[in-house]
């Protein structure tokens, strides 16, 4: 077990090292020299600014030292300075973090609850009309790009019916929920198909197992059989998938925040790219990759707790 944890963490660190090097080194791939690339907007090139960039990135040092200083700064919370906002990048990120986190959390609740519910319905009614309808409906919904869905939701529920506000964040918890409902739906819809699919698939496999037949043979009501034998045994893969999808939503927020005009981290990234503010781009990407890798690794380590048989296999290895 410990070897597995250590190996998994080691793998994660290695991948993080390579991807952070990629994020850092990308500026050397830019056309022209890195200084003018980092300064960004050509209209703002001043000697002071060039000096600031040189100092910020330690450009007079060897490449590896530059990377090391940048990375150790990032680890200690110093993510550099935004030239556009003239502010510490870590502050920019921190002020926008709550929006993004609440959006992702809201969407995660939506697709987990609805996805497992629809998947269970599909599995219980497998091979029947309801099953086909759920499969067709969720896959159809997943074929619509999230930004198109966002536009459609704004048009219908925001503008036409006026049920939901289309800008801003709202006051208080309820206000926030009200404001984030449409964005969360747009973000969650694509994931709904994946989660309901995985739920259905693992449950259908469970239905054919002997312990389910044995439970039925002992006269236990079907709803108990479904809950205690089929659904419970499917939780491992389903929870894993929900976690992975939640992690990958970090990138989905980029699109959704832009579509709904929410000022979260994703919108910050898009702004930074359009304004040639590369320190912000680096910092946001690094944060997203770290968060993503962290969550996926965590899921992998938590999985055995849900499934005792996995735990024992790992122990044997």
């Amino acid at each position: 077990m410990t070897t597995h944890v250590l190996r998994r963490l080691g793998g994660m660190l290695l991948t993080l090292a390579v991807s952070s090097a990629l994020i850092f080194g990308a500026m050397y791939a830019a056309p022209g020299d890195p200084v003018s690339f980092l300064v960004g907007d050509p209209e703002n090139v001043t000697p002071e600014r060039i000096a600031a960039v040189r100092a910020e990135y330690h450009l007079d040092q060897p490449l590896l030292v530059q990377y090391w200083l940048w990375l150790s700064g990032a680890v200690t919370g110093d993510l550099g300075t935004s030239f556009q906002y003239n502010a510490a990048v870590s502050d920019l990120i921190l002020t926008r973090l709550p929006t993004t986190v609440s959006l992702v959390a809201y969407a995660a609740v939506l697709f987990t609850v609805l996805g497992i519910a629809l998947g269970t319905l599909s599995a219980v009614r497998r091979g029947r009309r309801t099953d086909a309808a759920v499969t067709a409906g969720t896959t159809l919904a997943a074929s619509v790009p999230s930004f198109v869905l966002a536009i459609a939701l704004i048009s219908l529920f925001g503008v036409r019916l006026g049920w939901f506000p289309v800008t801003g964040l709202g006051e208080g918890f309820l206000g926030r929920v009200h404001h984030l409902t449409l964005p969360a739906i747009a973000l969650a819809t694509g994931a709904l198909a994946i989660v309901s699919r995985v739920t259905r698939q693992t449950m259908v496999e469970q239905f054919d197992l002997e312990h389910v037949a044995a439970a039925r043979a002992s006269g236990i009501a079907e709803r108990h059989v479904v809950r205690r034998h089929v659904l419970r045994n499917s939780l491992g893969p389903v929870v894993t998938m929900c976690g992975l999808v939640t992690a990958s939503m970090l990138s989905g927020t980029v699109v959704i925040e832009s579509a709904f005009g929410l000022s979260g981290i994703g919108a910050l990234l898009v702004d930074a790219i359009n304004n040639l503010d590369f320190p912000v781009v680096q910092a946001v990407l690094l944060c997203m990759v770290v968060a993503y890798m962290g969550v996926t690794t965590l899921i992998d380590l938590v999985h055995p707790l849900l499934d005792p048989t996995v735990r024992i296999e790992r122990n044997r290895v």
């Binding site: 991948t15 993080l16 390579v18 991807s19 990629l22 994020i23 990308a26 500026m27 791939a29 830019a30 056309p31 690339f37 992690a247 990958s248 939503m249 970090l250 990138s251 989905g252 980029v254 990234l269 930074a272 790219i273 590369f278 781009v281 990407l285 997203m288 990759v289 993503y292 890798m293």
Partner: peptide, 18 residues
């Protein structure tokens, strides 16, 4: 390494540079 970047973020990095 590619999969370490969720979704389109690798593409976003390339676009930020070029």
């Amino acid at each position: 390494v590619m999969y370490a970047f969720p979704g389109l973020l690798f593409v976003v990095l390339v676009i930020a540079v070029f």
